[in-house]
């Protein structure tokens, strides 16, 4: 089978960001940047989009900025994982 190197889709990047936040419970920007492997400037853009869509919330704790999943965000992650499982059945990725 011929393997073509594909860029990560937007949806996959969302999932990587949200999974980091879900795993950490509340995550700093730098942690998300390393775990999701996204450059800082692009990450800020995605974080803004997710905040606008009320999928994540920004909180301040001990003068540090953290991101947490909203209820809507938790549902969104669940749905994305379901999509990923379905796609894997047919050899596809997000």
């Amino acid at each position: 089978m011929v393997e073509q190197k594909k860029n990560r889709s937007r949806v996959k990047i969302y999932l990587d960001i949200l999974e980091t936040i879900e795993k950490e419970d509340k995550a700093r920007l730098t942690r998300i940047m390393y775990n999701a492997n996204i450059p800082y400037d692009r990450l800020l853009k995605y974080i803004d989009e997710l905040k606008q869509k009320e999928i994540i919330n920004e909180i301040i704790d001990n003068d540090s900025r953290f991101y947490v999943l909203t209820d809507k965000g938790k549902e969104f992650v669940k749905e994305l994982k379901k999509i990923e499982s379905f796609l894997r059945g047919f050899g596809l990725n997000l």
Partner: peptide, 8 residues
């Protein structure tokens, strides 16, 4: 509708 993948 969510993912652009012709196989779907």
């Amino acid at each position: 509708k969510i993912i652009e993948e012709s196989l779907l």
